[in-house]
Write a protein that binds this DNA or RNA. Structure first.
Lengths: 250, 250
DNA sequence: ATCTTGATGTCGAAA
DNA sequence: TTTCGACGTCAAGAT
């Protein structure tokens, strides 16, 4: 029975407290098979690339995905302590008597080395997943909400375009008000700080240059709410704010 | 032997293809013991909170950490498809004959429900990890590099303060040039786009207001490089750029 | 608790 | 490939 057949025959393949050579073999097989491989044990981790990091000995959970990503998790935090993104090259070997898992990529050149001084468990899972995540309550939902009912922004507002290009990037909604004045609308799905105001200001500046427009051009920030500093910045820049939430329900 | 003693006696506790009631018991025990619990199997996932999402049936890897975080991983992507942050309340129960794992929190009110129609494996790991990650190549390293040798920015530059507060936020490095002109320095560890220029501009504007200074005030962006658009914005706003990398080695 | 910004951010889309 | 902005961003420090 080949490794590939074993992979197909069972959904999970797990070894407990393997010797390092056996562990290395199992991990390498799992990678080869396109399985989702997990390793738990005592290890050290070295990373070098965009930044560099070192992590001393401790018990961690390592996950290798068939898309080439790798995640090293401690018992704390939502984020992995070390990782590599999809597309990396992974390998598992016996190095000086220990299991060593490496991941490399180029552009940018980055590598991750995990060395186990003790392996508690190795598992290889066959994954069958055809479903996609359906999400709502995003900025896209906010845009649709406004396009369905433009008066949510202001009586007489008419959307003319979405993602209208300017020399500073694309404006979320481009339209005009009841009196025909141009309005640039920037959407944010949640409470905004000064950064969003800066973004809107860049678009308004760019439109004024692009249009050579003497007529007043309005910039409108649409979000559930703004921070105090953001509100100050809005006023100082002559920009407006409309409160609106992406979630229609509740 | 109590659950706590069993937890102490072994580093990993794994069951394969458990019945749903047994799986629920094992997960609940693991949570109780403060273990890092993993579950692999066919499940659906529902999330509701800041946004909402639904995920149809598929094989996924679920990790519950003793700090209250939960991660649901598919076979693709560095990021979990669904999750909850640390501090959430977790529970595992038998619901209509299936294993159901739930996580809830308040402020904001958010909940995650994972329902397994098939459980392939449940593991509970005892984690012993005293090491902390040591990282280099961050913006903090770039700041130290400059404070060690201010001439890296420009001959005659003198740092006067770091994180100097303005009405628009804190300036990374505040100093003066050879002729005594005030310089506001914004640091970025990697190539920057228009957002960083807007940030620097806010600080320079704020300083001009705060200082009531008629003398020219210089704004300097320090990063490895800038995008074309960012360079345009710099010139238009009379701001300067100095190329510098946080990593001294290589 | 809210605000602000950095991050090995990650991710996706468009040029 | 690079650029750009959204993200249930997360996480940390300050107020």
């Amino acid at each position: 029975m080949t490794a590939s057949e074993r992979h197909r025959a069972t959904r999970a393949d797990t070894v407990v407290d393997p010797e390092p050579d056996r562990a290395a073999e199992r991990v390498a097989d799992g990678i080869e098979e396109g399985a989702l491989v997990t390793v738990f044990g005592r290890c050290t981790v070295e990373y070098d690339g965009r930044a560099s990091s070192t992590l001393g000995p401790g018990d961690r959970h390592v996950m290798l995905k068939p898309d080439g990503s790798i995640l090293v998790h401690t018992d704390e935090g939502q984020q992995p302590v070390n990782w590599q993104p999809p597309g990396c090259t992974q390998d598992a070997e016996l190095a000086d008597g220990d299991l060593r898992i490496r991941s490399r990529r180029s552009t940018p050149d980055e590598r991750l080395d995990v060395r186990f001084e003790q392996v508690t468990q190795v598992s290889a899972f066959a994954v069958d997943d055809a479903s996609e995540l359906a999400i709502s309550g995003t900025e896209e939902d906010l845009r649709e909400r406004i396009l369905d009912d433009p008066e949510l922004l202001e009586a007489g507002f008419t959307p003319l375009a979405t993602e209208r290009q300017t020399s500073a990037g694309a404006v979320d909604i481009y339209g005009e008000d009841h009196s025909g004045r141009t309005v640039a609308v920037e959407l944010k799905r949640k409470r905004v700080g000064p950064d969003a105001v800066g973004q809107l200001r860049r678009y308004v500046d760019a439109l004024e240059r692009d249009l050579h427009d003497d007529a007043e051009l309005r910039g409108m920030l649409v979000a559930p709410s703004v921070t105090d500093r953001a509100r100050e910045l809005l006023e100082r820049n002559g920009l407006e704010f409309v409160s609106l939430t992406p979630k229609t329900s509740e």
